[in-house]
């Protein structure tokens, strides 16, 4: 199937949000290096951070091939209002339970997203999606093992996990904020849409959380944290970007 000009525009919008999510969450997860609750978790979060940042690079490379700037310029030279990430990924790492719950919600959604994109009519993306979904499988396995382990192990762990769930759930729903071009993407077989993704995600995460002894709030009672896809962000993003680009901006023309 040939992709229309409108379709290309819609793809760019979609790639930016996917890539920005991956870059920012990868960056956040990398902050656990050296600080995890057990050494094995330092190492795991660090691995997943590398994968996430690597995946964002693959997305920015597709964007470059579509006429956007080179990946370093895209990633290191924008301000927060030019980013399209959801609010969930912007928050500091906080306590371990927050980072774990965020990792679980996000990666479950991402696993489904790339499963869907593996059949996209936009072949460059479908190709990368097939590779990425194989890697994310290990991230979701990791998340589920820990959710299971900590959900009901002790009273404290249950309390902490439930609190983290309640905090992250509205943020997680922000992953699925609809874009401007959902219909074009669906019509041209590029991506089925955020609504479909959210439905699948909810069906998948709910029984896992319940089995771990946690309560999932009814989705109708929650206001999703929207705005990120359109450049409206939490106050956490801009300082993070300033830190991330501190060295790069010493001399953007220099080779580092």
């Amino acid at each position: 199937m040939n992709i229309s000009e409108k379709g290309f525009f819609a793809i760019k919008e979609m790639l930016y949000k996917i890539a920005d999510d991956q870059l920012i969450l990868g960056h956040r997860n990398s902050e656990w290096t050296g600080l995890g609750p057990v050494l094995e978790e330092d190492i795991a979060f660090s691995s997943m951070a590398q994968d996430k940042i690597g995946h964002s690079l693959a997305m920015y490379e597709i964007l470059s091939q579509m006429g956007e700037s080179d990946p370093d310029t895209i990633a290191f030279m924008r301000n927060d209002d030019q980013f399209h990430c959801c609010h969930l990924v912007e928050y500091p790492i906080g306590e371990y339970e927050f980072s774990l719950m965020r990792h679980f919600f996000f990666d479950m959604a991402e696993a489904i997203r790339f499963e869907m994109l593996a059949n996209s009519t936009f072949e460059p993306l479908a190709m990368v999606a097939r590779k990425i979904k194989g890697e994310i499988k290990y991230h979701t396995m990791h998340a589920q093992i820990w959710i299971n382990q900590l959900g009901a192990a002790t009273e404290e762990s249950n309390l902490r996990m439930q609190k983290a769930l309640n905090e992250t759930f509205p943020l997680a729903l922000g992953i699925f904020e609809p874009g401007t071009h959902e219909e074009i993407l669906a019509e041209e077989g590029i991506f089925e849409g955020e609504k479909a993704l959210q439905d699948k995600w909810l069906q998948l995460v709910t029984p896992i959380l319940e089995k771990a002894g946690l309560q999932v709030p009814s989705i109708s009672s929650i206001t999703p944290s929207y705005g990120g896809r359109f450049g409206s962000h939490t106050p956490h993003l801009q300082p993070m970007l300033e830190e991330m680009t501190e060295v790069f901006r010493i001399d953007p023309s220099a080779e580092w």
Partner: peptide, 16 residues
């Protein structure tokens, strides 16, 4: 900060 996690791993109730 990680103590509760390590305790949860040791708990008799925790399960693989």
């Amino acid at each position: 900060k990680g103590r509760w996690v390590r305790q949860a791993l040791l708990s008799k109730d925790s399960r693989y």
